[in-house]
Design a protein around this nucleic acid. Structure first.
Lengths: 365, 365
DNA sequence: CTGTTAGCGCTTTCAT
DNA sequence: ATGAAAGCGCTAACAG
């Protein structure tokens, strides 16, 4: 027979106390206290009956749930799944249940989940990799109407987040700040700059960049940080390529293919206009870029060196080993959780660490 | 001001109807119906007030939640995160919220989550990669007490799952069946067998196997399927190695390293006792194995060919491209969701597809 | 067809 | 220190 879960009142009856006392004994009330022997008795019967509270009922009574919402673009992307692992660990430590939303890059779905979190009275919500930030309207930026629509959605999301916060929920974003909301900031610009400096130090002088999709702040910051450091060093990128799509392996492949074909057609090719190294703004794209180089009959790093960003663990064994900027993603997830829960001072910033590997060998000459 | 979410009674009042009518208008009661104009009016006010129901309250009243529990070993493992993507997609389609549990390979935590799901009255629960199955007590099997403990935990888990089911929850497991519970079975043995046949067809005759941790059914089935087909073809594996740890990249690395050192010391080495190809029972391990071969100063596939299992998307670009058995993990996740929800007939089985790539080139001679 | 009224399981005043 | 009772927001009998 479907044995219904044991309720608190059963425990109370069995222990010979009132419902209220049982409740207080089990989750120690702030104001009231319970006589030692009674508490003992209640706890013991609870254990014996294998009682455990119904989260929904507690949520109703307390006006807040025990749920922590995690919103990612795509849980199958190792960037996000690594963050998710950190969040899951930290959440469990706090006794919270994590509810996962994989938006598949849809801003509408992102918004819907934030609103769901609010009405569901989630304890907190963590947004990873939000597209919230807007492109700065550079030369390759999309048409105005698209921009306006994106701006509208970004604003709606920010409002929803703020509303959630005002309703008492905790919020944390991962990546970059959003209108004053708490953030575990990843120093994308700084990391990319450090990478540029390291590559320059290794003897590279001619650079290409696969920038990732316009409108993704993470991508833009990495690009900018890289380019700015480059010019500070007296170099300029030879070529940059905007990747459509979503920061993916295939995006990296296509971008590199375009970059390569541009080089081929280039009359200035003999003038040394070929990048010695190409920086793809994340590892997953870098891997696609390497594949593209190979499919074009060239070699990495022989003909072109390639560097990425993130240091995705699963990609640790690609060949040649990828030069990248390590970001402790799992820790970022944990930090975001603590931040969202108010266990931590706000707005921490995580710095990446440059890791030079075989994909960008020291360049002698 | 923390604007509290709009409640149904506010909507009812505003629309000038009773609470019950409002409820019926919004989620069409099975038995009762509502006059068209009233329904309209309610719906309109609900929209205007931006009402949305409180899931906890609905859960209490209805006696069941809108939550779908997903339990995985490690969400940062691409095998599981890909499954999770499928589950998330299917769940969203059904209007369910997925609550994620990453157990970090702890059977205790697995059990705890199943029990949580029950008392929380989750609609359904999906277990991926459970360690539920027991080793068959082969020569390398662990000591009896460990076995007994594992058996106890497996039994407890199965009981919890059954209890959950009897309480009205849906259940699906992924990988292999568990005591008659619904399962999206992955034909691990068949896939591994097909791989063995394909490698044999490509000219390989001397095989090694990195079997993965004892006690993991998925690993065991793949190993067995491979070895059985091998002997049917008149071959035997030269060497097999048990990987401690958890089916991971490092596990693969270590296992391959051990296998290699065994070969070195082997007097029979000149007698052709070196495997031509090593089958690692999943891609992640295979990647580690390749790294180990290289670190030993040998090459893949020049000195040793390597094959994996799963066809993890993120690993698509390792070099050399990995021969593997493709498992449509995302679809598996979707199927499991439908199965757990009773939208699908039970116990589907998914067959993998052998994909021969550069890591196991045709062997002439 | 609509409205009234019990709860769902738990927390929390408010009395005692 | 304990208990009785009033909800939390919603659904589902049960009356009209």
């Amino acid at each position: 027979m479907p044995d219904a879960p044991v309720t608190l009142s059963q425990v109370a009856r069995e222990a010979g106390v009132s419902l209220a006392t049982a409740s207080r004994a089990i989750n120690g009330s702030a104001t009231r206290s319970v006589r030692e022997d009674l508490r003992e008795r209640v706890l013991e019967t609870a254990r014996r009956l294998d009682y455990s509270p119904d989260p929904s009922a507690q949520a109703m009574a307390r006006g807040r749930t025990t749920a922590l919402g995690l919103v990612v673009h795509d849980i199958s992307d190792p960037y996000f799944s690594t963050i998710a692992a950190g969040v899951a660990r930290a959440a469990e430590r706090e006794g919270l249940i994590v509810t996962l939303a994989s938006t598949e890059h849809s801003p509408d779905r992102e918004l819907a989940f934030v609103e769901l979190a609010r009405r569901q009275r989630s304890r907190a919500i963590i947004l990873a990799g939000s597209r919230i930030a807007l492109p700065d309207g550079g030369p390759e930026s999309p048409p105005a109407e698209i921009l306006a629509e994106a701006a509208g959605k970004a604003r709606a999301l920010e409002m929803a987040l703020t509303a959630f916060q005002e309703a008492g929920g905790g919020v944390a974003t991962i990546g970059q700040g959003v209108g004053g909301l708490p953030v575990v900031e990843i120093d994308n610009a700084g990391g990319a700059g450090a990478l540029a400096r390291a590559l320059h130090g290794a003897g590279y002088r001619r650079f290409g960049v696969l920038t990732g999709p316009p409108g993704l702040r993470t991508a833009a910051d990495r690009t900018d940080g890289f380019l700015e450091t480059l010019s500070a060093l007296g170099c300029a990128a030879l070529d940059r390529d905007v990747v459509d799509g979503n920061f993916t392996r295939d995006g990296g492949y296509e971008a590199m293919t375009r970059l390569l074909s541009r080089m081929r057609g280039d009359a200035a090719r003999s003038a040394g206009n070929i990048p010695e190294v190409v920086f793809a703004v994340n590892d997953v794209m870098a891997v696609g870029a390497i594949a593209a180089v190979r499919d074009a009959g060239l070699s990495v790093p022989g003909d072109i060196a390639v560097a990425g960003f993130d240091d995705i663990h699963t990609l640790r064994d690609v060949t040649p080993a990828l030069t990248t900027v390590r970001v402790p993603l799992e820790e970022v997830g944990e930090a975001a959780t603590r931040l969202a829960l108010g266990l931590e001072a706000k707005n921490m910033v995580v710095h990446g660490e440059v890791v030079l590997r075989d994909s960008t060998p020291e360049r002698s000459g």
